[in-house]
């Protein structure tokens, strides 16, 4: 009853070809030079005092997008947690600590990764970097710790992990709400505390993003070894 047999295989090919043609035409029709919002953004970033324009766009001008983006990440984590089959599955597969080589490597790498994550957040306001990059490294460190037996996989979904997962979003919401009491609008950071507020959010976000990535990994562990059907 597969639709492959019933449906001519050529049509998807034709459809994708059509997409290629139409999008290609649309791209070629563009003038070779255009500014977009580059100039406005650069001027705005100067006014806001954040040196890295992309960070200024992400956390200040379009900070609302980023707030919702954090929500997407946390939502996806919650979603994957809700789909997990057997919370204890991974624990059964990682019995005991890793061997001496991996153990030593982990003991060296994990603290280093945590420092790198902190650095990435710190430089985020002036150079490429920021909470996402830092969070990704932090999450990777967590995965390394779990796989080599230094952390318990069953932690995923526990109350304390939930708090870490949520704290970034909660802090972001708090900072977003704070200007409202001074008559400003959502996310309208006061000029004098803009930089410190953004750094504050970034640090907590890094923690939550790291926890998210770790939870996504842990929660998708298979119910049975090898992922085979029981």
């Amino acid at each position: 009853m597969g639709d492959r047999r019933r449906f001519p295989a050529l049509l998807p090919l034709l459809a994708s070809g059509g997409v290629l043609a139409f999008v290609g035409r649309a791209v070629l029709a563009l003038p070779p030079a255009a500014n977009g919002l580059a100039v406005e953004m650069r001027d705005g970033a100067k006014a806001s005092g954040i040196k890295n324009v992309v960070t200024a766009v992400l956390l200040d001008f379009r900070g609302y997008d980023t707030l919702l983006e954090i929500a997407v990440l946390m939502l996806a984590t919650v979603a994957v947690l809700s789909l997990r089959e057997d919370p204890a599955a991974l624990s059964r597969r990682i019995a005991g600590r890793a061997g001496p080589v991996l153990g030593a490597l982990t003991r060296t790498l994990a603290p280093l990764m945590i420092i790198v994550a902190g650095h990435l957040v710190w430089v985020g306001s002036s150079e490429p970097g920021g909470a996402f990059q830092g969070g990704a490294v932090l999450g990777a460190a967590g995965i390394l710790l779990v796989l080599s037996g230094y952390a318990q996989p069953a932690w995923a979904g526990q109350r304390i992990v939930r708090w870490v997962l949520t704290v970034g979003l909660l802090a972001f919401i708090g900072v977003a709400l704070y200007p409202m009491f001074g008559g400003g609008s959502l996310l309208q950071y006061p000029a004098e505390s803009r930089k410190s507020l953004i750094l504050f959010i970034e640090i907590l976000l890094t923690l939550s993003i790291g926890a998210s990535i770790l939870s996504l990994f842990l929660a998708s562990a298979s119910a049975t070894a090898g992922g085979e059907r029981p």
């Binding site: 639709d3 492959r4 019933r6 449906f7 049509l11 998807p12 459809a15 059509g18 997409v19 139409f22």
Partner: peptide
Amino acid sequence: SAVAWTAASTLFVLLVLLLV
């Protein structure tokens, strides 16, 4: 057969092309 994945999604992309 209209809701089978390949047929349906191809139909949708063709609709996209029609609109464009």
